[in-house]
Design a protein around this nucleic acid. Structure first.
Lengths: 246, 246
DNA sequence: ACCTGAACACCGTTCAAGT
DNA sequence: ACCTGAACACCGTTCAAGT
């Protein structure tokens, strides 16, 4: 576990004793500006780091307060609660994806769609512990909206109707999220063996599960990103067929 | 909240007082059989019902013990812990999906694939609170394996290679799970307005998000299952193109 | 042999009381 | 004005002690 070490054994000097105020960290050095020194953004920063390291499950307001050398009650003066905090932690993920939608148009819309989906997948693969935040939460933070807007606009420039473009974007997002949910090692600090599930399939009774067995050998040889791209091609090809129909 | 009413105000008769043993519920009426009266299965049953009603987040071993009129310590004599319990609760979902894979072969593999995916989707729509159990858990319970085996076997009978059949099944599962994660109201006992997100999009600055706005009107008119089926067609059409290449 | 009250080490959130 | 210790009402899990 990556829980920060407790300070329980090392109590801070009691209030009033010499130097107790100096021991408070991150004191504003100058006069107060518009924002207090430990305002919203640094809290989200620290929360994102904690979730990245230990997962949403082990994340706690107490651990966050500890990391920021403050109390949970102080956190609640800047943030409306754990759930709200997680909304902003999730938008941090889309800041990384946003880059993939910048720059000039790709050679084809297929290439553009592939790039956004792949970048989304890679961002999740790099921060798998953020995935649970995508369950029951359509990302509507500013970075998430930017990714959505630019991708749909790109498809429209390539001749998509607005409604098919939106449907295509959503289908891609659904696939990326489902893939991550099933294939990425979420909140398992123990070393995650990607072949464990294939081994499990292979050890199954061959008579009872002949087709699963027949496919298991093939599955094990393929790296995760190849599998992602092969399945992704299904969707992009299917979108292409729908586009030709319009 | 659907938490069962606490018995705190109404303590059971103290051990030793007359009739205290009789107040214990579900006592085996006959002699003990191989299994104790409150063994694994009834515990999973009750757990599945609790998760269905209140979600994984509000589910607790204490609430489960209360519902079964026993103590948490007793639960731990039959079950290895909350996580193990959730594995078996999830397999309950696949028992419902299994039916869709029984019976004679469909007219086409497309029809068969569509049916399994739709049934999976409908099972999740009926039990949305089970969805978080699909994050980071490839379902390997007996019913989940049966669905996997029969679907892959069906595709093989229609001329698929084993590896393409497995990839197709996985792609469909990923899509269904991702769709459910984003579109189904998970653990929100408050009335969930499916148009809320579309309204949110429509209220966005039209200059900053012109493409999102252009698509929003179309999205709102379509019922959830239609959207599911339209996106599903992308994948099935894409699988078809891959099949023709082999 | 089987069960459980009570404990242990945690949670998210709030508020009276401090400076 | 700003901060926080301590409390409240919870968790999952364990174990000594009961019958």
């Amino acid at each position: 576990m990556t829980k920060p070490a407790t300070r329980k054994g090392i109590p801070a000097p009691p209030p009033g004793s010499p130097g107790w105020w100096e021991s408070r960290p991150e004191r504003a050095t100058g006069p107060r500006r518009g924002r207090p020194p430990r305002s919203f953004e640094p809290i989200v920063d620290a929360a994102a780091r904690l979730v990245d390291e230990g997962g949403t499950r082990s994340f706690s307001m107490r651990a966050l307060a500890e990391r920021l050398d403050t109390s949970t009650a102080t956190l609640y003066r800047h943030v409306n609660g754990r759930d709200e905090l997680m909304v902003y932690v999730l938008d941090r993920l889309f800041a990384e994806i946003e880059q993939a939608t910048e720059g000039p148009d790709p050679a084809s819309w297929q290439e553009g769609a592939r790039q956004v989906a792949l970048r989304f997948h890679q961002a999740l693969a790099q921060h798998p512990n953020l995935l649970p935040l995508l369950v029951n939460q359509v990302p509507v933070g500013p970075h998430a909206l930017a990714v959505r807007e630019r991708t749909i606009a790109m498809l429209i420039r390539f001749g998509f109707t607005a409604s098919l473009a939106a449907r295509a974007f959503t289908a891609l997002a659904h696939y990326v999220i489902g893939f991550a949910a099933q294939q990425l090692p979420v909140e398992q600090p123990a070393p995650h063996d990607p072949n464990a599930i294939v081994d499990y399939y292979r050890r199954l009774d061959r008579e009872r599960y002949p087709s699963i067995n027949a496919a298991a050998d093939d599955l094990s040889a393929v790296p995760l990103e190849t599998e992602f791209l092969e399945e992704l091609r299904f969707i992009i090809d299917g979108i292409d067929r729908a586009r030709r129909r319009t």
